[in-house]
Simulated assay, not measured.
Amino acid sequence: MTPRADILKDVVADLRIAASFVTIMPVASSKPSGDGAIARATWALPVAGLLVGLAGALAYKIAIRLGLAPNLAALLTLATTALVTGALHEDGLADTADGLGGGYTRERKLEIMRDSRIGTYGVCALILSFGLRWSALVAIASPWGVMLALIAAHAASRAGVPAFMSLVPPARRDGLAASAGTPPGRSVAIAFAVGTLALALALGPAKALVGLVLLSIAGLTLARLAIRQIGGQTGDILGAFEQACEILILLVAAAFLHAGG
């Protein structure tokens, strides 16, 4: 096999790993998941996010074509993206809210985050997440604008995950974050570039810059909170990070994109 064919095979394998990592699509790669394979494949997370955004945009377009109002179309859109991802990130957000908000010690917080049951903090976090995203999509209203916003939000929200994993150590020796490994600098850089490109193309350079600043603030805030309270990041923390970034980008899009067309 030629070097070019080997590179293409690795790229496809990474894309399949990323897609299986953040969605329920049956695209698991035959490439071994050990030996840092997941960490190396994190460059493709924003690409997988783009697919999730397109699925949501398609659901919105179909709902509008069927004559549904934007508020109902937006609700179906969020249901679609949650279904495609298996509500993985929402689960992480709820567990993070329960753990960081409900425990008094590091050990208790981590124990709560591993508990499959949802508490008051988790319920409130999910209500805020769905409410803010729904409101943003309703404010944008136009199918074209919603598509751009969803692509930007789902790609950019995952583009920062490799950097977050690289800069914030795992809180546990076991678990998703620890087993995934630390993404290499190349994967971090490619993911950042893909996410930034998606933001710029969907929202324009100026709005993309606003989005990047907000995402950086959100990432630094959550990283500081996670390190102080539980000693680092977990899979749940990464889910909460994705949700926070997704919400922020949709709000930025709602503030700048106008309805119509």
Rank of each mutant, 00 (worst) to 15 (best):
G145D: 11
P3M: 12
S142L: 03
E242Y: 12
A18E: 06
S142T: 11
C245N: 15
L167H: 11
C245G: 10
I38H: 05
D174G: 07
A253T: 13
D10W: 09
T81E: 12
I190G: 00
L100I: 14
I247M: 14
A87H: 06
G103Y: 03
F241V: 14
A55M: 14
P70K: 04
L51D: 00
V168I: 15
R172A: 05
Q233L: 15
V213A: 10
L197M: 15
A226Y: 09
A94V: 11
L214C: 08
A200F: 10
A44K: 09
E111C: 09
A37P: 02
V84M: 04
M165H: 09
L203E: 03
P26K: 01
D95L: 12
V12D: 02
R16L: 01
G160A: 08
S30Q: 11
R173F: 06
S142K: 08
L150K: 09
R133V: 05
V210E: 15
L201P: 01
R186F: 05
A163P: 07
R158E: 12
W43Q: 09
R158L: 15
L209E: 07
G204C: 03
L257E: 09
M1V: 14
T221S: 15
P32I: 10
T221A: 15
T182D: 07
T105V: 01
L225Y: 07
A226E: 00
L83H: 06
H154T: 03
I127D: 01
S116C: 06
V12F: 06
D236H: 15
G86V: 06
G232R: 06
V168A: 10
Q229C: 02
G131H: 03
V161L: 15
L248W: 05
A198N: 07
L220S: 13
A48H: 13
A28Y: 09
G181C: 10
L88K: 12
L72M: 13
D91A: 07
V123K: 02
V47C: 00
L225P: 00
I127A: 13
L51M: 15
D14G: 02
P169M: 02
A19Y: 03
V252K: 04
I38E: 05
D95T: 12
I62E: 01
G181K: 07
A152F: 05
A57C: 05
L15H: 03
L248V: 09
E246W: 04
H154P: 00
G67E: 08
L214N: 09
A206C: 00
G49W: 11
L199F: 08
P46E: 10
G86H: 10
V12H: 07
R172N: 11
V22Q: 06
N71F: 14
A171L: 11
R4L: 15
V84F: 05
I217Y: 04
L238N: 11
K207I: 07
G175L: 05
A208G: 09
D95K: 14
V168H: 08
